[in-house]
C-alpha cells in the first residue's frame, strides 16, 4: 500500500480492529518499517492491553493535544520490536476531546518525525470517533467478519471512506472458519468480495491463540509458529502492505475453500 497513514476500521464493534491493528503493526515493524500505532478509541482504551504495554502508559493522545506533554513523550517503544511505537488513547476522557485538526497534526508530526507508517486504530461506529480517526488517513483497512451484519456495516464504512476521498481501501476478512464456509454455514470470501467490491489484502482464520495472546499481551504475529494460525496470516498481510507479493497460501485457506477464492486472484 502506498498510504502512509492507514486507518483500521469496521463500523461494527468486536470484529477485531484492535487485534488487527496491533498485529499488523508489529508484523510491519518486523519487516523493517518504523511504525507508530495510534489508539483513537478515547475512553475505551484497549490497544495498550492487547500489546502488553499497559503498565508503561504515562501520557496519552489527549495529553499531547492539550499540551501536557510532547508527542515523543507519549510514544511507547515496544521492547520486542524496536521499530514499533504505540501512542495510547486516554481512558478517562471522552471522544469529544479529540478533534480532526489535532489528529491530522499528530499524524503529520509522526510521519515528518521519521515514521514510515502510521496505523490508526479507529473506534467502532460511524460517528465523530470514526470521522476523527479517519480524517488524517490516506488509506484504510476495513476489517470484516464473515457475517451479514458485519458486511453491511463494512459497506457503510466503505461508503463513508470513499466520500472522504480515501482512495486506497483494502479488506481483511477476519475470523473465517473454513469448515463452516465449506458447509455453507458461513459467508465465503467470494460472497463478501462480491458485495463490498474492494480489494482483499488478507484472510485471517478463527484461531483460539488470538484470544489467548490478547489476554496475555503477547502479540500472535510475533509469537505464533503454527502453520494454520492467525499469526502467519497477520505476517502475510504486513508483507502485502509492505508491497511484497504473497500468494494466499493454502494454510490460510485449507481444503475446498481455496477453490472459492481462486477465481479472484487469477489462480495465483
Amino acid at each position: 500500500m502506498k498510504s502512509k497513514a492507514i486507518v483500521v476500521t469496521s463500523g461494527k464493534g468486536g470484529v477485531g480492529k484492535t487485534t488487527t491493528s496491533a498485529n499488523i503493526s508489529a508484523a510491519l515493524a518486523k519487516t523493517g518499517e518504523k511504525i507508530a500505532v495510534v489508539d483513537t478509541d478515547i475512553g475505551l482504551r484497549n490497544l495498550d492491553v492487547v500489546m502488553g504495554l499497559e503498565s508503561r502508559v504515562v501520557f496519552d493522545l489527549i495529553d499531547v493535544f492539550e499540551g501536557r506533554c510532547k508527542l515523543n513523550q507519549a510514544l511507547i517503544r515496544d521492547k520486542r520490536v524496536d521499530s514499533l511505537f504505540l501512542l495510547p488513547a486516554s481512558q478517562t476522557k471522552d471522544k469529544t476531546a479529540l478533534s480532526k485538526r489535532h489528529m491530522k497534526a499528530a499524524v503529520n508530526a509522526l510521519i515528518e518525525g521519521g515514521f514510515d507508517r502510521v496505523i490508526i486504530d479507529s473506534p467502532a461506529g460511524i460517528e465523530d470517533g470514526f470521522k476523527t480517526a479517519s480524517a488524517a488517513a490516506d488509506g484504510a483497512i476495513v476489517v470484516v467478519n464473515p457475517e451479514i451484519s458485519s458486511v453491511r456495516d463494512a459497506d457503510r464504512i466503505i461508503g463513508l471512506l470513499e466520500a472522504q476521498n480515501i482512495k486506497e481501501i483494502k479488506l481483511i476478512v477476519n475470523r473465517i472458519r473454513p469448515d463452516m464456509v465449506q458447509r455453507g454455514d458461513m459467508l465465503g470470501i467470494s460472497d463478501i468480495l462480491d458485495i463490498l467490491g474492494i480489494k482483499l489484502i488478507g484472510i485471517v482464520p478463527e484461531d483460539e491463540n488470538v484470544l489467548i495472546s490478547t489476554n496475555t499481551g503477547k502479540l500472535i504475529s510475533l509469537n505464533d509458529n503454527s502453520k494454520l494460525g492467525a499469526g502467519i496470516a497477520f505476517n502475510n498481510i504486513a508483507k502485502r502492505i509492505h508491497g511484497e507479493e504473497v500468494s494466499y497460501l493454502e494454510l490460510e485457506a485449507p481444503q475446498g475453500f481455496f477453490s472459492g477464492i481462486r477465481k479472484f486472484f487469477g489462480g495465483n
Binding site: I126, R152, D153, D155, R156, I158, G159, L160, E162, G197
Partner: peptide, 8 residues
C-alpha cells in the same frame, strides 16, 4: 456509475 452502499 458506482456501487451504492449501505446508508446512501
Amino acid at each position: 456509475e458506482r456501487t451504492i452502499r449501505s446508508g446512501a
